[in-house]
């Protein structure tokens, strides 16, 4: 399976769930160190973003629809439908409202999250 990040050293990994807990091509939310993190599974790859939607001020992104826009994987906010890139947290409609992306990896079926935001999101 894939690791989608480079720096694996000195990360604080937390096991949050099994890949089977995530419906295919959809998301769930995990609570890691008091932080709400949305985890998405697309085919066999996993991604992690803030669950907080800056446009509505509600914790809802894990419940958005995932898909692709011009080849880039994104999730659409379920409230006002802005898109965020799964890999980086970039907001497609308004870069100023981009959100944090988190390091995530698989160990077998187990999903592991590092709750520090990615450096260059």
């Amino acid at each position: 399976m894939t690791d989608i990040f480079k720096k694996e050293d000195n990360m604080n990994w937390t096991a949050v769930c099994s890949t089977n807990d995530i419906p295919p091509n959809a998301g769930v939310c995990a609570l890691v160190d008091g932080k709400q993190i949305a985890i998405f599974k697309i085919d066999n790859a996993v991604f992690a973003l803030d669950n907080f939607d800056p446009f509505s001020g509600a914790n809802v992104l894990s419940r958005g629809i995932v898909g692709s826009l011009e080849g880039e994987l994104v999730v659409a906010s379920p409230i006002y439908k802005q898109h965020f890139a799964l890999a980086t947290g970039r907001c497609i409609e308004d870069e100023n409202e981009s959100i944090a992306a988190y390091n995530v990896k698989l160990d077998g079926d187990t999903v592991l999250i590092a709750a520090e935001a990615q450096a260059a999101a």
């Binding site: 509505s56 914790n59 809802v60 419940r63 629809i65």
Partner: peptide, 22 residues
Amino acid sequence: EAEHAGLQDTNDRMLANMQKNG
């Protein structure tokens, strides 16, 4: 159903209408 769940729009996904605070 597993293959349909991820397709559903905001409200269908939870069989309820999402409000402004989630």
